[in-house]
């Protein structure tokens, strides 16, 4: 294995990592694969959410790895619910806390309610419950960790699977080139509900992720955070490249990091010198290795157009 040198500017703010909170509310001993991206993201999220948090967890990888009876990795109140109703259960918890506070049964202090669901539980199965929760305006943060397929059951394609990716339900071969549809943009769907806070984040930028989760709890009303999480098992990447692949996805524009606060778009990690070609990101992964240059060109055009649209949205809404 060779060590890839990164430019010197990348290390300028490296000592800031020591400033992150030291407490862990998602403890070690969980059973995620080696180099798990969502488990890394959850750790940063729980650092930001802190002690007064109720976690509602839909079925998915993070539920399986953290709670094999009689063990639990959670040091906060935690409830496991089915794929489709995580947002509905969180709405109920929010309503119950409000009712109990009105009756004086529990002290009036802020309780963070956090939903953690995978991309299958958000983009496919739980979309209507999510939409209902956002429309009713419950004070809940919905966090979707997106590893771009149903990794827990063995890499079946979800509607968040990117174009051209080979999964067990969209296999690449002589007839097909993998997923023939584009990735569903759930962050844009959430932003269309006109909720106070929508953000996209990646565990490769931990301080950015911690700041976004804190901001989502500060604002009154529903919030949605889309977390891009690398899955070495399902994507066919080496486990030691997890953080690097997340960084490449952001640098190539495959997954731009932005936030929408009360309708104002803002790119939180921007590259004024231009984006890297998407091939840098695609060539390291087993699920994309069958792609021909024409399909890569098609992906490049789409990614560039989406990034330009995001820049335009930022320019229009910041004025």
């Amino acid at each position: 294995m060779s060590v890839v040198q990164r430019p010197k500017e990348a290390y300028l703010n490296v000592f800031a990592y020591r400033m992150a909170p030291k407490e862990e509310f998602f403890t070690r001993g969980h059973r995620a694969c080696q180099g798990c991206g969502p488990a890394l993201g959850l750790r940063h999220i729980m650092k930001a959410a802190g002690r007064d948090t109720i976690v509602v967890n839909a079925t998915g990888c993070m539920e399986i790895i953290s709670s094999p009876f009689p063990y639990t990795s959670w040091a906060v109140p935690w409830i496991h619910v089915a794929f489709e109703n995580a947002a509905a259960v969180a709405s109920g918890i929010d309503a119950a806390i409000k009712a109990l506070q009105r009756k004086g049964r529990i002290p009036k202090k802020k309780t963070n309610i956090l939903v953690i669901a995978g991309d299958g539980g958000t983009a496919d199965i739980g979309l209507q419950a999510l939409s209902g929760m956002l429309a009713r305006g419950h004070n809940v943060t919905y966090l979707c960790y997106d590893n771009e397929a149903y990794m827990n059951t063995g890499v079946q394609g979800s509607s968040a699977t990117p174009f051209g990716a080979s999964t067990t339900t969209t296999p690449a071969g002589r007839v097909s080139f993998g997923a023939g549809y584009w990735k569903k943009n759930v962050a844009a769907i959430a932003a269309a509900h006109d909720i106070p806070y929508v953000a996209t984040a990646c565990p490769s930028y931990p301080l950015d992720l911690i700041r976004k989760v804190r901001r989502s709890f500060e604002l009154e009303g529903p919030a949605y955070i889309h977390l891009f999480a690398v899955c070495p098992t399902g994507w066919g990447t080496p486990p030691e490249l997890t953080v690097r692949m997340g960084r490449l996805a952001v640098e190539t524009g495959i997954f731009p990091l932005y936030e929408v606060e009360n309708g104002r778009y803002k790119l939180t990690v921007d590259f004024p010198q231009g984006l890297r070609p998407v091939e840098d990101y695609l060539k390291n992964q087993r699920r994309f290795r069958h792609l021909t240059p024409e399909i890569i060109q098609q992906i490049q055009e789409r990614i560039t157009a989406e990034y330009e649209r995001l820049k335009m949205m930022e320019k229009v809404t910041q004025e």
């Binding site: 509310f25 001993g29 969980h30 080696q34 639990t72 990795s73 959670w74 040091a75």
Partner: peptide
């Protein structure tokens, strides 16, 4: 089947993986 001790997965050592 509630788990009464928070964060008890620290007893499960994953180091032999």
């Amino acid at each position: 089947c509630c788990i009464p001790e928070p964060g008890n997965s620290v007893y499960y050592k994953t180091g032999d993986w």
